[in-house]
Design a protein around this nucleic acid. Sequence first.
DNA 1: GTGGTCTAGACCACG
DNA 2: GTGGTCTAGACCACC
Lengths: 136, 136, 136, 136
Amino acid sequence: MIPFDIQLRPGRPVSEQVVFAVKRAVAKGVLRPGDAFPSVRSLGKDLRINPNTAQKIVAALTQEGVLEIEPGIGARVANPRHTHVAEKEQRLREQLEVALIEARLLGMDSERIRALMDEISQNLNPEEDHDRNSED
Amino acid sequence: MIPFDIQLRPGRPVSEQVVFAVKRAVAKGVLRPGDAFPSVRSLGKDLRINPNTAQKIVAALTQEGVLEIEPGIGARVANPRHTHVAEKEQRLREQLEVALIEARLLGMDSERIRALMDEISQNLNPEEDHDRNSED
Amino acid sequence: MIPFDIQLRPGRPVSEQVVFAVKRAVAKGVLRPGDAFPSVRSLGKDLRINPNTAQKIVAALTQEGVLEIEPGIGARVANPRHTHVAEKEQRLREQLEVALIEARLLGMDSERIRALMDEISQNLNPEEDHDRNSED
Amino acid sequence: MIPFDIQLRPGRPVSEQVVFAVKRAVAKGVLRPGDAFPSVRSLGKDLRINPNTAQKIVAALTQEGVLEIEPGIGARVANPRHTHVAEKEQRLREQLEVALIEARLLGMDSERIRALMDEISQNLNPEEDHDRNSED
DNA sequence: GTGGTCTAGACCACG
DNA sequence: GTGGTCTAGACCACC
């Protein structure tokens, strides 16, 4: 079972969407370091996607440091290792620049943009309400 | 002549990159409403791309409301019309969510992210009046 | 002087727009049969368009039976002659079909469409209020 | 195979005509949400047009929300999403105004126009369940 | 297999 | 001159 829902939207690569969904789950705390991650097989079955694609997803997440593979055991969510920080921060800057430019072309001023950021940020936060079990 | 430089990076669609570069120029005020935009042919020649690709770029920018076409005359930067606002705002939210998630996975807290946003935002600001000579 | 305002919108052929504007003026009664129509020269000058284009406009309107040319005198709005009825009605049907299809794809039902038609139709009507001067 | 026939008329953009034909098919219910849509290549082959043109057609229909693309899988008729509603409704009004003006210049009164609309509308309706054999 | 992008060059309509 | 469309065929990413 996957502890989060993935809504595939047509028009973009499936693998990309799933990778992002996992990242979001980790960012929100729905998935936490140490949590088991579905095997390639069950992932493909659950999401109704090509096993080939499932394999690629796990590989990508591993490569980015989000997952860790224990050969013969399975995959689990990795401790934050902040790998490839430099290049990731570079990509992040670009993403933010793209978003900011689009926002401006939409006629938003800085205040409006900041408010939007805060709103999205808070939507990302609420992993605090339901019960938790901490063992870090 | 194009009043801004475009650095094509291999591996990504050329047209996409140029479209974005133009948007950035408009957002920065380097290109302003009413300014003439290079013809399809000259754009293609300047950027060393196929006229067809240049055509696609102009079409995309027109469709998004960034450019205005006068058939037989040429293209120019449009007044902000804010077309397709709903759809664009939705896409913007998604872009921002993606960026925020990446930032968190990088270990950034809200304050750090906000600072980064401000930095990028200010980099976008400098719409000085004097003609541009860039050699920083 | 032209007794109606024409707002040129970028992205479509100028001639087409002017032709349509004249038709609308006639349909609304702003221009009436017998009214003088500007010469090619003054039309081009008033609208700030290429004389070549102005010429084409007059020719098109004449060909459609909206204008009549009195050689050496000038052009005037023709009496409704309903020329080319068959082919025009055919074109009209196609236009209406296109519009209806777009409306449906927009999710409008017949009632909504009819209401929209009525609204537009009434917007076309009010040529009765202001004073008139007849010199046919 | 394409479940509807497209009669290309010379002199007008092929892509435009095909796009419209697909829209009509959707409006009539000949194509229904979820139905598979021919691949770019097969569409090009069936219609005897360049794959590139076929690609443009699919792209346009996707952009308008009529089709949905799953990369690597294929295209299918989308559920009505009613995107870009504001812009489309504006365009629709203009289309209707053009048609109404033409109708008036043809000497049609409101009643005649309405009757014509109803006729076309009903021609658009027949979404019978039985498979289609057209030899009317 | 699928869609997406790019190049190369032709033709047309518009002004 | 301008933009717009089409053809022909190549390459890539995705599944």
